[in-house]
Design a protein around this nucleic acid. Structure first.
Length: 621
RNA sequence: GCGCCCGUGGCCAAGUCCGGAUAUGGCACCGGCCUCCUAAGCCGGUGAGCGCGGGUUCAAAUCCCGCCGGGCGCGCCA
């Protein structure tokens, strides 16, 4: 049985020894896990700063370090030395190399994965309103969350990724209203001259003309990617609402009322209305899911909020919420008094029904969380930071119902444009599709320039398909999720430095070496590894050893940016090794074999790290 | 106005949760490296003391307080 987590096992050992020595020398018995550091590689693998115990031990930190060193038995796994106030540990190269490379070889694609934890986690993510294509601002959600899902799976959880479709709210209703009432051909409507330019849509008294029919009953080839068409109806509907408010359009109608009527009819399960919503939402979702597939993001399950309303779940939750003392009424609408629930928020009232009796997003989301809870042990929601208040509200509502939900919410900041945040409604957006397409095109140009003479056109296109979307994904996900990102085409399409293409390229190099050695990936012989002694070799192995620990940390903290850093660092270490240590022309057959094993292991680790990011590793590029 | 998040070389990020050894990468810039396993690469160099001001501590980019700048929120929207 190989060690699944080489670095973690050495670290645990260093901690255990330090504890023992601390106890033996000073009678101190304390948890010191958090004190043990991993400083720069030249300094030590693990370090224990002794300052913390100076007063307890009644000794200078440097003396403590000396005493601890003396108290520790020598082993062939790790060396220990006192250096000033630090007790430094170095894993013996031989132990490091054999433990690590054996583990990688044995576990191959599973290297990095941790033992089953037996708990199930339901990760809800993306859940963008089905009103149009995914834009880059929101796309941070699926890109981030899909990697969190992969990390949790690697960490041994059973994970379900779910998309919650808000098909019954005002946004969806606005789109439906638009699809039924707006003609996008845009000629005859009378407006101020400057308005006409901004709003070139024709609002029709008659629903379902040619254009809206196209939405409600599209031809076979339009059904695939209808989100881009639909969003125009959504934008037009919003524009109509705005103009109507200003008294400049639809003087004898009230779009707002008509939208409210749609919601009421849907909640009352009016068949025709339900069909319209379902159809339009399904088309929008088809477009969104196809974009997600292009970005290699997967959901295991899609839940429509209307299901929860129509099957009575929301009604049952509502009944329970009404029982609460905190539930009060204002103008016929019901709300929960947050202060009474002991929650200090910006909004003291959490409305759970409208005056017309229809429910609100928050109410339905409470029901949805209860539903999720029946299907998993732990919940993770990935939400934009604009949902922070909403998240506290539903958690407050849930705990008011006496349900402690093991819910972890991961917030992210939006990707914005230099001129401000992206907005579907206004059309100030960069769509994910366009960016993916652009990235692919750019990648193809790059491959052609570099390898145009050697590779076939088909192969170059394959590579571009792997590299373009990967560059984008890597880029978005390499920044800590709570930091804002300002979008720039230049950065998004950069293929040098800390990027996916650099990591992929390094992976391709390992494959190139193996190929020249006549070996298939994963087939390097398990020879005598003790020949690996060069600093660059050891540093590379050290890096490989760390993947499982990284997975544990990232999965537990639900963060993915350290994985991108790790992938880049591994590639950098590989490139240094590549520079310093000839493989095919190594000095001896033993060394050559050992280096081939290291190359093969690195190939595997790079591929595994990229897999956590939803990125495929090409064998050549 | 109130609440939450962010503020690190010219630019972009890591490090901040759990305070410790000369602050780590990338882009850009300057200078080198393709008779040698793919130059989407490698080596060297210039450049920050971590928004500002206090405080705690043997020790602060990391903790506390105040301020400034940016984002988000404060809907019978989602």
């Amino acid at each position: 049985m190989v060690e699944p987590d080489p670095w973690g096992s050495f670290r645990d050992e260093a901690i255990a020894w330090t504890c023992e020595a601390l106890h033996a020398a000073y009678g101190i018995a304390e948890e010191i896990d958090h004190l043990v550091e991993e400083p720069d590689a030249e300094l030590a693998d693990f370090a224990f700063p002794c300052h913390a115990f100076a007063s307890q031990a009644q000794a200078a930190p440097a003396d403590i370090a000396e005493n601890l060193e003396d108290a520790l038995p020598p082993t062939d796994e790790m060396t220990v030395r006192a250096e000033g106030p630090y007790l430094n540990f170095d894993v013996e190269p031989e132990a490091l190399v054999t433990t690590t490379l054996d583990s990688v070889r044995e576990r191959s694609a599973g290297y990095g994965e941790l033992p089953e934890r037996g708990s199930s986690v339901l990760v809800e993510h993306t859940s963008a309103n089905p009103t149009g294509p995914l834009h880059v601002g929101r796309a941070r959600n699926p890109l981030l969350a899909d990697s969190i899902v992969r990390l949790l799976r690697a960490a041994g959880h059973h994970v379900v990724a779910e998309y919650y479709v808000n098909d019954m709210g005002r946004q969806a209703a606005t789109l439906v209203w638009g699809a039924k009432n707006v003609d996008l051909r845009g000629d005859a409507y009378e407006l101020d001259p400057d308005e006409a330019e901004a709003f070139s849509f024709d609002l029709l008294a008659q629903p379902r003309d040619a254009a809206s029919k196209r939405v409600l009953d599209p031809g076979p080839d339009e059904a695939g990617k209808l989100d881009r068409l639909l969003v125009q109806y959504y934008q037009a509907a919003n524009r109509a609402l705005e103009l109507h408010d200003q008294g400049r359009a639809l003087p004898d109608r009230d779009p707002e009322d008509e939208i409210a009527d749609l919601i009421q009819a849907f909640e009352a399960d009016d068949e025709e209305t339900a069909t319209e919503f379902r159809q339009i939402v399904t088309w929008a979702m088809k477009g969104i899911r196809s974009s997600l597939e292009d970005a290699n993001v997967h959901h295991d399950n899609v839940v429509f909020e209307s299901e929860l309303v129509l099957d009575g779940s929301v009604e049952r939750v509502l009944a329970d919420l009404r029982e609460l003392d905190a539930c009060q009424t204002e103008d016929g609408a019901e709300y929960l008094d947050m202060e009474q629930l002991g929650v200090d928020t910006d909004k003291p009232q959490m409305f759970i029904t409208r005056g017309d009796g229809t429910t609100l997003y928050g109410t339905r989301d409470v029901a949805y969380h209860l539903d999720k809870l029946e299907r998993a042990d732990e919940l993770v929601d990935v939400l934009g930071e604009d949902h922070k208040l909403h998240a506290t509200e539903i958690q407050a509502a849930l705990s008011a119902l006496g349900i402690e939900v093991p819910l972890d919410v991961v917030f992210y900041n939006f990707v914005s444009l230099p001129e401000g945040s992206m907005s579907t409604r206004s059309g100030r957006v960069v769509y994910l599709d366009d960016l993916l397409e652009e990235s692919r095109t750019r990648a193809l140009a790059e491959v052609r320039e570099r390898r145009g003479e050697e590779l076939s056109e088909a192969r170059m296109e394959e590579i571009a398909d792997l590299v373009g979307p990967a560059a984008l994904r890597f880029n978005v996900v390499s920044v800590q999720s709570e930091k804002p990102i300002e979008f720039s085409w230049e950065k998004a399409l950069n293929f040098e430095g800390s990027t996916a293409p650099f990591v992929q390229y390094s992976h391709a190099r390992t494959c190139g070496i193996l190929e020249k050695a006549g070996l298939d990936p994963g087939q390097a012989p398990a020879g005598d590894l003790t020949a690996l002694m060069h600093d660059s070799e050891i540093q590379l192995v050290r890096r490989l050893a760390q993947l499982p620990s990284l997975v544990r940390e990232c999965a537990d903290d639900r963060k993915v940016h350290p994985v991108t850093a790790y992938a880049v660092e591994t590639a950098q270490d590989l490139n240094k090794f590549y520079r310093d240590c000839p493989v095919l022309e190594a000095g001896s057959p033993e060394l050559r074999e050992a280096r081939l094993a290291l190359v093969d292991a690195t190939r595997q680790v790079l591929a595994n790290a990229l897999a956590l990011l939803g990125i495929d590793a090409p064998e050549s590029m």
